[in-house]
C-alpha cells in the first residue's frame, strides 16, 4: 500500500469506528450486544479503538440462554474484566425455570423465548435506544438487506419492506419515543475479513474456535457437541472427534466442523477454502425464511 491508501481491512475498521462514534453522539443510552463469539470479539475490539484512551461509553449486554459452552462463560468473564468493560447478563429466568429446551419445545420456540424475548425484555428494562449487534450482511440473505442503522418500532420489530434510506455515511439518528435502532457496525465485513482481522490484530477468541478432540454426536449432516448429554436424542451415541467451531451458539443447536485447524493461520486457510457457509452449522437458520421471521420479531 502506498502512503495514503488503506487496506480493505483498515477501510472497514475506519467505517465501523465512525458508526460507533455517531451512535454515541446521537443516542441517549446505547448498549453493545455481546454474544462472546468471534464477531463480538471483533466488534468489542473496534469499540475499544473507537473510544481509546477512554473506556467504553456503553455497557455490554450478554443475552444468556444458559445453554452456552462453559468455555464461553469463562472467556467472557476473563476478557470483559481484562478490557475493563461493564457487562450486563440477562436471561429469561421464567422460561429457564420451566425447562425450556429445543428438544421438547422445538428450536423456534426455544430461541424465541431464550434469545428474542430475553433480548427484548433486557432492552426495554435498560431503556436502551440503540443496540449494537455484530451481524454481518454476508451471513444470510435477509441480513444482506439490512441497513447499518436499522429501525425498530416500540415492539422491537423490523419492517424490512419499509426501511429508511441510508445515504453516504450520514446516519439518521432521529427516532420517536419508544422506538430504537439496531446498529450493525460489521455489516460490510465478511467471515474471511473477521478471521484475517483477528489474526492481524491478535484478538483473543474462545478456544472452541481451535481444533481439538471433542465428544461429538453425528445427526444428519450436523456434528453436535456432546459435552453434556441431556439435549441428545434417543439412541444417539457420542464419540471423540477432531473438530472445531466456525460459529458459536447454544450447545444443542451449534454444529462443529470436521477440522484440524489449531492455529490462526490454519483457520484462515480453512476459511479461504470453505465451500459451505458458516451458518450451515446453526440449526436456527434452517427453514425457508426463518432468519427473516425471527428478525422481524426482534431477534438479532
Amino acid at each position: 500500500m502506498s502512503d495514503h491508501r488503506l487496506t480493505q481491512l483498515k477501510a472497514l475498521e475506519a467505517e465501523s469506528i465512525h458508526i460507533m462514534r455517531e451512535v454515541v453522539a446521537e443516542f441517549r443510552n446505547p448498549v453493545m450486544l455481546y454474544s462472546v463469539g468471534k464477531d463480538s470479539s471483533v466488534m468489542l475490539h473496534l469499540a475499544r479503538k473507537a473510544f481509546y484512551p477512554a473506556t467504553l461509553p456503553f455497557p455490554l449486554l450478554h443475552v444468556d440462554t444458559g445453554y452456552k459452552f462453559k468455555e464461553m462463560y469463562a472467556f467472557r468473564d476473563a476478557y470483559v474484566k481484562e478490557v475493563g468493560a461493564e457487562l450486563i447478563v440477562r436471561r429469561n429466568e421464567d422460561a429457564i425455570a420451566k425447562g425450556m429446551n429445543p428438544k421438547d419445545f422445538g428450536v423456534a420456540r426455544c430461541c424465541g423465548a431464550l434469545k428474542t424475548q430475553a433480548l427484548l425484555d433486557a432492552l426495554e428494562e435498560g431503556g436502551y435506544d440503540a443496540a449494537f449487534g455484530g451481524a454481518r450482511r454476508d451471513e444470510e440473505r435477509s441480513r444482506a438487506k439490512e441497513r447499518m442503522f436499522s429501525m425498530r418500532d416500540e415492539f422491537g420489530q423490523w419492517d424490512p419492506k419499509n426501511q429508511r434510506p441510508e445515504l453516504w455515511s450520514i446516519y439518521n439518528g432521529c427516532i420517536h419515543e419508544g422506538e430504537s435502532v439496531r446498529v450493525f457496525p460489521l455489516s460490510n465485513w465478511t467471515e474471511m475479513d473477521i478471521w484475517l482481522y483477528i489474526r492481524e490484530q491478535e484478538i483473543p477468541i474462545v478456544p472452541l474456535y481451535y481444533a481439538k478432540e471433542r465428544s461429538i454426536v453425528k445427526r444428519g449432516n450436523l456434528l453436535i457437541p456432546a459435552m453434556n448429554t441431556e439435549h441428545l436424542h434417543e439412541g444417539e451415541v457420542a464419540a471423540p472427534m477432531m473438530c472445531r467451531f466456525r460459529t458459536l451458539g447454544c450447545i444443542p443447536c451449534t454444529g462443529a466442523v470436521d477440522s484440524s485447524a489449531a492455529d490462526m493461520d490454519e483457520i484462515v486457510a480453512e476459511a479461504a477454502a470453505a465451500k459451505r457457509s458458516e451458518r450451515e452449522t446453526r440449526i436456527i437458520d434452517h427453514g425457508s425464511n426463518s432468519m427473516e421471521d425471527k428478525k422481524k420479531e426482534g431477534y438479532f
Partner: peptide, 12 residues
C-alpha cells in the same frame, strides 16, 4: 500462504 498476504493488503 502468499495469497493470504495479498488478501490482507488488497483494496476495497
Amino acid at each position: 500462504a502468499l495469497n493470504f498476504k495479498i488478501t490482507e493488503e488488497i483494496e476495497l
